[in-house]
Amino acid sequence: MNIFRLAGDMTHLVSVLVLLLKIHTIKSCAGISLKTQELYALVFTTRYLDLFTDYISLYNTVMKLIFLGSSFSIVWYIRRHKIVRRSYDKDQDTFRHYFIVLPCLVLALLIHHKFTFKEVMWTFSLYLEAVAILPQLVLLQRTRNIDNLTGQYVFLLGAYRALYILNWIYRHYTEPHYVHWITWIAGIVQTLLYADFFYYYFQSWKNNVKLQLPA
């Protein structure tokens, strides 16, 4: 464990807890894309298949349970909670799941480290995580209103993967056999997707104006 990875995990943890806390306290999911949240639940499910088979560390297991629990709770809140669901903007959140899931699945079946079920699912989760934010970014551009909690959520989510890239660079130089180009490419694509959001986020923060994404 290196500082970049710990910082990345903590940033990721804070991002999902900020979102869960927001939904739980103000009982609203305005501006949040259910599609993205469902895709993240799928990412964690397909990535953590080894949760019960390979024990790596208490930290690893606890964090996996927290990510699984929080992502499914967020989906439950938006779908089932009698108050929260009323604030879900389903007419704007229309990104088709299969436009994202199918290409990632096909890509995982074509490009992977080993052709085993767990390995293909793990690779699928990497590709899926890279693009899972798209419905949320589309929704933000459509609704154009970004309350600061949602802005912070997306920012932290992007920051976590950027920290992971630093972790991969660090491990590449400190652990000789640590080469995982699939992880790296998916992680870089994911961070680049956030790049334009980062740009507008910093602009709004620097000029101290409300965050507006160009249509």
């Binding site: 990875r5 995990d9 990721h12 080894d50 390979d54 790596i56 560390s57 690893n60 964090m63 996996k64 990510f67 480290h113 793990w122 992971y164 972790n167 991969w168 491990r171 652990e175 056999h177 640590y178 995982h180 992880t183």
Partner: peptide, 10 residues
């Protein structure tokens, strides 16, 4: 073969 190390990541 060595279990791919990045499996110890989240």
């Amino acid at each position: 073969d060595n279990p791919s190390v990045s499996k110890d990541e989240l």
